[in-house]
Amino acid sequence: MTLSLPGALLRWRPTDLSGRMARWGLVIVLVYALLAVATPLLIHTGLLPDPNAGLDSPIYAAPSLGRWCGTDRLGRDVCVRTLAGSGVALQVVLLALITALLIGVPLGMLSGYLGGWLDRILVLLMDTLYTLPVLLLSVVLAFLLGRGLPNAAAALCVVYIPQYFRVVRNQTAQVKAELYVEAARSLGAGPLWILRRYLLRNVITSVPVLLTLNAADAVLVLGGLGFLGLGLPEAIPEWGADLQQALTAVPTGIWWTALYPGLAMFVLVLGLSFLGEGMEAWVSGSDGGRGS
């Protein structure tokens, strides 16, 4: 990967698409992270208007020099709401995935290492969860948990636990069968020591890729929840919920409320996917795509 080389951006090297994708992905994600930090600060200092303030502005005003992206049906600034959405999305997705990681990885290790009936039951349960369509499962959970930032994160997190469980469980079961692990165990090494010594390295290489690709997916699912009127409370500016409100205006030809939040979401998912795919190719040492 040629991340550190500034001149690499200028060189067109078709064989190294993964490196280029990782680079662009990183740039995009960093820009969003920067916006996520900067927007609340700018709103706080008054340089940007409050994303929820709009009662004194005209509703459905078309984009103009004063308001670059126009206003929505409550007269709120579409630009500011779109910018503020990046922080919300990153926050929820990060919270959800870290929770999924903290539950899925230890559970996978335990299941793979212990084996037996506990392993079988957990695998069956996780496989069943994995079979369910992601959006359907999180819709049900979000419906039950109600609106709220931690609730939305919890609804997302359950969807991703099986993925970490599967990867870690299979790797643990594989490593456990290796001869050198057998040797270490016969020399008196405990399970914790073995897991840390032989497994962590494998997990550390495969989990970040999964994490990045899942983050891309989670942004879409969170948007889907918002679009269906679930997930975050109404006071928090979120792309999916804004798009739901924009939907009613589409037949009248009002495009600006629909275009910008969706575009922001699309580019963030694109950036995360690029980063994940680039990392995947880099880790596996070949130029592949998303596998089957």
């Binding site: 879409l220 948007g223 999916g240 694109l270 998303r290």
Partner: peptide, 12 residues
């Protein structure tokens, strides 16, 4: 492949 994946369905 990546582009179609990254499109939010409702936005598309």
């Amino acid at each position: 492949g990546i582009g179609t994946y990254a499109l939010p369905p409702f936005w598309a």
